[in-house]
């Protein structure tokens, strides 16, 4: 089997995640889709690391995880405080960014 297949899988997962971001309204689910996209990237990095025969790809994936963790912490905090004030986790309710 050609390891490039891992890249195809990563691309597929990334696209699914992106589509999820676009069609879901619940902020939590939307956030999960972002995590899915990040994981797809990580898979690609790991596969590249194997192809190129060095560990830099894995290091980047490692950092991605760290940053994703930080992002999740802040993002969920935002969702919680949003829910407290609006009693809703729908991103469409926050639609004041217009005239």
């Amino acid at each position: 089997m050609n390891p490039v297949n891992y890249l195809y899988l990563a691309a597929l997962l990334f696209t699914i995640g992106a589509a999820g971001v676009l069609i879901r309204k619940n902020a939590i689910v939307l956030f999960m889709c972002v995590e899915l996209m990040l994981n797809a990237c990580n898979l690609a990095f790991v596969a590249f690391s194997r192809m190129h025969g060095n560990l830099d790809g894995q290091i980047i994936a490692f950092f991605t995880m760290v940053v994703a963790a930080a992002e999740v912490v802040v993002g969920l905090a935002i969702i919680v405080s949003l829910f407290r004030t609006r009693h809703s986790a729908s991103v469409d309710d926050a639609s004041l960014m217009k005239l």
């Binding site: 971001v21 676009l22 991103v91 926050a94 639609s95 004041l96 960014m97």
Partner: peptide
């Protein structure tokens, strides 16, 4: 053009995508 600015974050995300 203003009609494009409907205030929905998801709408903007589609444009970015």
């Amino acid at each position: 053009l203003r009609k494009l600015q409907n205030g929905y974050a998801r709408s903007y995300a589609v444009s970015m995508f």
